[in-house]
Amino acid sequence: MIARLRAAGCVFAEDEADLLIAEATTPDRLDAMIEQRVTGLPLEQVVGWAEFRGLRIVVDAGVFVPRRRTEFLVEQAIGLAPARAVVVDLCCGSGALGVALAAAADVAELHAADIDPREVACARRNVEPAGGHVHLGDLFTPLPSGLRGRVDVLLCNVPYVPTSDIALLPAEARSYEPRVALDGGTDGLDVLRRVLVDAPRWLAPTGALLVETSERQEPLAVAACTRAGLLARVASCDELGATVLIATLPAGDVTAS
């Protein structure tokens, strides 16, 4: 088993073999899981879950796999969440970000939304047991109107890979994750710009928008934030290779309508 996994390019073949053995219910199921893995299916989709900030997040086939670096975004959000926070997780994928924040902070209301029906179906399996609600639609469109001006923490792991760079991604991402969760347009910031246009109407006066981006895109992302009338700062973690844009309303600015 280890030899097959290693030959398929699995760097941590021994660890993966142990996990597959632990998750397989029968020898036939183990053989099928090994075959899925050696043909390139992400390990998390093979076993049906991913570990994210110590939680077991359900990950269905064809769903974006939460990255470890994105744990840094959640850590930043934990420090910003007030008591009884209203939280929205846009481009939610599996719902990992909102669920992880709800597990670590005092969250009174949790909503998640995604445009991909597969992602939404998966997110419901994670978010609803945490007491949250999941909505199908494009960005803010499916959210309840009553959230306008009330969102304390707006998590948004937008797709930010430039279209020309998609071909450079690992085969696991290119072949088994939805392109809509990866492709951010020509410079990778198309979806972020759309979020920034509407975010001021949804944020509470002291709320914060947190978006993962790349170090390379940081100057353009900050400039886009400024054009949208938001104050921007950037947090980064060298260990995880994570860059997070944190945007807030200017003091005294109440734009909800």
Rank of each mutant, 00 (worst) to 15 (best):
A123H: 07
A22Y: 06
Q76E: 10
T25I: 03
V11T: 13
R68S: 04
A121M: 06
L90Q: 03
D15L: 05
V46Q: 00
L101V: 12
L101C: 12
A96T: 07
V74R: 13
P66I: 10
V74K: 12
A17P: 11
V120C: 06
E51R: 11
Q45S: 11
V65R: 03
L110A: 09
V88E: 07
L19T: 14
W49C: 05
P82G: 05
W49V: 08
A83K: 15
A61I: 13
E44R: 14
L30M: 07
E71H: 08
A77R: 08
L43W: 01
I21V: 15
G79A: 01
A104D: 12
G98E: 09
I2S: 05
D106R: 12
R53W: 06
G48A: 04
I2H: 06
G48V: 02
A96F: 04
V107L: 03
L30G: 08
R6W: 00
T26W: 04
A24E: 03
A7I: 03
G9H: 04
R67A: 07
T25R: 15
F64Y: 13
V107R: 02
P82M: 04
A24R: 00
P82H: 04
Q36T: 06
T26Q: 02
R56P: 03
R118V: 12
R67T: 14
A112L: 10
R69M: 04
L19V: 13
L80V: 00
L110I: 09
G48Y: 10
A121Y: 08
H111P: 15
L20N: 01
I21F: 11
D15V: 10
E109D: 15
R68C: 00
S94V: 11
C92Y: 03
A113K: 10
R29V: 08
C10A: 12
G40E: 06
E75N: 10
A102P: 00
L55Q: 07
S94L: 11
A22R: 14
A121D: 14
L101G: 08
G54N: 08
R84I: 06
E119R: 11
E23I: 14
P27R: 06
H111S: 11
G93D: 09
L41Q: 12
V11H: 11
S94E: 13
V65Q: 01
V46D: 01
L20A: 02
V11A: 14
G40S: 09
E109M: 06
E35C: 00
A17F: 12
D15R: 14
A3F: 05
L43Q: 03
L80D: 00
A96K: 04
I57T: 00
P117L: 06
L90Y: 06
V59G: 05
G79H: 02
V59D: 07
A22F: 02
V87F: 00
C10Y: 10
L80H: 09
V74N: 09
R68L: 04
A77N: 09
E35Q: 05
T26C: 01
D116W: 06
D28N: 12
A102W: 00
I34G: 02
G54P: 09
L97Y: 13
I2W: 02
A102L: 01
G48H: 12
V47G: 10
V38F: 00
D106E: 15
A121K: 14
R67C: 09
R29P: 01
Q36C: 10
F64R: 04
D28K: 12
D18L: 09
F12K: 15
G95H: 08
P42Y: 05
G79S: 00
R84N: 15
E14Y: 07
V65E: 00
R69D: 12
A32P: 10
